[in-house]
């Protein structure tokens, strides 16, 4: 921590963490409702594509962001409706969503811009950056936590709201009960499918935000922009023991790995491909380590 580079690395960690955090918090809702939601990846990509496109077309960041999130909520609705009401296997429909997202975005990009590669927008409004007044005088904290764009702070707010909704509201109770035993929920005259659909829509909403952050901060859309972040977010849910605070810690660890890799890429001759592989490798090792721990804890 004494290296002069640790501050930019940590500053970037906070930034990189945001999409993971958004996706994982949304995924927590579906996970608690008893569904394996592998569609996080695809939903993020949808949000990323449509928010940057709509922002460029309308010239209004707020409008573009809203329409982008609506797009991923719409895809989540299709995904959820088919899974729950047409009774399709949610793992397969999740794969479908992950296949639909790159297909749809590429086809539309080709149709609109005649280009399947990187689409850059020149006049896109910048994400507003925020300085936190309270910590302005604390040098280290200020350098790391302050001066990010508003989506970063929105993600923290989302975690807090999610924790309140999950643990302190009737909806949260019903959500968790649905995951434990949907039949019991039914016997109370509630409809478990509706609660599950709501959870899927929430995951569509937060994934839309997470994806938007990726494209809007660059002012561009890149094919496969999400690059496995939805999957890593899924692992973060498990490693975070399906709790909001745990998810924050797991997301931070993954983001820190990525931030360090980015930094190492600039100063060493380690091939870029190996560095690109590290987030997956670290996630995998963390997952294996976690299951080993769970295994021996259960044995005792």
């Amino acid at each position: 921590m004494h290296s002069p580079y640790s501050i930019p690395v940590l500053h970037n960690t906070i930034r990189i963490m945001t999409p993971f955090l958004f996706a994982a918090i949304g995924g927590l809702f579906t996970e608690l409702a008893g569904m394996l939601n592998i569609a996080l990846e695809g939903l993020m990509l949808i949000g990323a594509f449509f928010s940057v496109i709509f922002t460029a077309f309308t010239g209004n960041l707020f409008l573009g962001l809203t329409l982008g999130i609506l797009s991923s909520v719409l895809v989540a609705l299709i995904f959820g409706w088919i899974s729950l009401y047409l009774k399709a296997n949610i793992f397969i429909t999740g794969l479908a969503t992950n296949l639909l997202a790159p297909g749809l975005t590429t086809v539309l990009a080709f149709q609109i811009f005649g280009n399947k590669g990187v689409i850059r927008f020149e006049n896109i409004p910048n994400l507003t950056h925020i300085t936190i007044p309270i910590i302005r005088r604390i040098p280290l904290l200020n350098d790391i936590l302050s001066g990010h764009n508003f989506l970063v702070y929105l993600s923290w707010l989302t975690v807090i709201i999610a924790a309140i909704v999950i643990y302190e509201t009737p909806f949260g109770l019903r959500l968790r009960a649905t995951g434990l035993n949907p039949r019991a929920i039914e016997s109370y005259g509630l409809k478990p499918r509706r609660i599950q659909l709501a959870a899927i829509l929430i995951s569509g909403f937060t994934c839309g935000l997470g994806g938007s952050m990726l494209s809007l901060e660059m002012g561009a859309f890149v094919p496969n922009l999400t690059a496995g972040r939805g999957w890593i977010a899924l692992v973060a849910i498990y490693l975070g023991s399906k709790r909001p605070l745990g998810i924050v810690i797991a997301s931070f660890v993954f983001a820190l790995t990525e931030s360090i890799s980015n930094y190492v890429q600039g100063i060493t001759s380690v091939p870029a491909d190996f560095i690109l592989a590290t987030p997956y490798m670290v996630t995998l090792l963390a997952m294996i380590g976690w299951s080993v721990w769970q295994y021996y804890r259960a044995k005792e």
């Binding site: 088919i82 429909t93 794969l95 639909l100 590429t106």
Partner: peptide
């Protein structure tokens, strides 16, 4: 004048429906 990726959209539709018990 269409791009190859329409195949991916069609595949996604097949994935969506192929396990649907309602059918």
């Amino acid at each position: 004048d269409v791009t190859f990726e329409i195949a991916a959209i069609v595949q996604a539709i097949i994935y969506y429906l192929v396990t649907a018990k309602v059918i």
